[in-house]
Design a binder for these strands. Structure first.
Lengths: 250, 250
DNA sequence: CCAAAAGTGTTAAGCATACACCCATGA
DNA sequence: TCATGGGTGTATGCTTAACACTTTTGG
């Protein structure tokens, strides 16, 4: 198996610097008024789409690798990260899509090319502020853009399962971790927070019940000021208390 | 790095058959009247202890590898398995303990020996019936026995953290998954079930509240028969309904 | 008949749900 | 002043916790 530098690739594709057989894939969630979104890569000269992913350097912690991969695609480096599952069955290792991607872009990889080996992939999900992200395609991808959670294109490998699993865990933890802190701006109204929750949980929530539940949870603090310029009554602004550590893995 | 067969090791230690850099470690929970226990390996001619672990074959799904490793140490093959976290920081990769284990048993590994490389380890936990297990030490280990959850020896690498994390997740899920089915025999009394839960959660539970909570959960069914020979009033026997799949990963 | 374990009844507290009502604001 | 979004009060039902009571069994 070719384990050294691939002469036609940029330097970051010097495969020998990475742990073999182990990859990272990221489900990057963002939120705007029209709902929850995921950042998806589209590959050049093909109709393949995938989650942003990458590899782990030989002297790099896996969490640091995930952070680096996220920064490469979003430009952000203070990101809420959650490692949620390791995907490693045999069916997921289908070399065909990657082979076709390489061939359609001028490479003719041998069957034992490093990129075509079997990978076990560590799934991370990230919560980022949609507006702060500058999506950046990678070397073989020519698009990197947001897709609504219900309008995802077909994804290669088992990436659809990864999205499903990440969503499941996001929904499980939405009331116990300060999910909103990472998807909204610093200050927000209760209505904005409720719309976020409805988008994550994919269901309508009762306004008053939600209001009290969030206040009772103790995660929020109400700021004295009110928002100006709204169409009707000025709502209070809220923010998350910063008692707990900012980045919580697991 | 030596990647082929190590002449002094048995055939199962033909390192080339495994994925490099990736390991599996298992927190195997068992339960007897005196509490929750974990199966721990002790290494020959040293005072090192570790969780049972192993490696993944190149054409083997990670869940299958975990099952195989469990079967090697317990003799059981129908085991409740839960992959709970991937451990991959740099501090966990300390070659010294393994080097000393090998040296104290007649091997003189070079510094780039396969076993001394950096590993990312997938943590699985298993729930097994304590009485059905026949613990089997491995090649370098001469003991394989149960330790009470509060009497664990010091463990190598980050295995203590793995135990802690596994316990945390076991506790989180104890009321929503049919944990007891895998740690008790087919039929049990409510009192036995309560003692198990108290042992897992490490706290006393209210008898009547526990009774009703378990019955309302719908996971249990009451069997008509009663136990005979008990010292006092004959309790009902209960068992878990078998609606849900037996092995639930995640 | 008493002690101990097991099952059930009762009450109070806590939380979610649902609805009603009031407040503030711009059109 | 009215429509609308936002905040709070109140009634109902469900879950949990705590305690009392009854049932069953062996000594």
């Amino acid at each position: 198996m070719k384990n050294s530098r691939d002469p036609d690739f940029p330097d970051s594709f010097n495969w020998g610097q990475f742990l073999p057989a182990l990859a990272i894939d990221c489900v990057i969630f963002g939120y705007s008024e029209d709902g929850l979104k995921i950042l998806i890569l589209g590959y050049k000269n093909t109709s393949f789409f995938s989650l942003p992913g990458g590899f782990i350097r030989k002297k790099e912690a896996i969490d640091d690798a995930a952070k680096r991969i996220l920064e490469e695609r979003t430009g952000l480096n203070d990101i809420y990260l959650n490692q949620f599952y390791a995907f490693g069955n045999l069916e997921r290792s289908d070399p065909e899509p990657m082979k076709m991607i390489m061939e359609n872009n001028g490479f003719t990889p041998s069957n034992d090319h490093w990129l075509l080996q079997r990978f076990v992939s560590l799934g991370y999900f990230a919560l980022v502020n949609y507006k702060r992200v500058k999506p950046r395609p990678g070397f073989l991808s020519d698009s990197c853009r947001w897709y609504g959670i219900h309008e995802l294109p077909e994804l290669i490998f088992d990436h659809a399962k990864m999205v499903e699993q990440a969503l499941k865990i996001l929904r499980r933890d939405v009331y116990s971790k300060r999910i909103g802190k990472n998807l909204l701006f610093e200050m927000f109204t209760m209505g904005e927070l409720q719309k976020l929750y409805e988008s994550i949980l994919d269901e309508k929530l009762h306004r008053t019940g939600f209001h009290r539940k969030m206040m009772r949870s103790g995660l929020l603090k109400r700021l004295g000021k009110k928002k100006t310029g709204g169409a009707h009554r000025s709502p209070y602004l809220y923010s998350f208390r910063s008692d707990k550590p900012k980045h919580t893995i697991s």
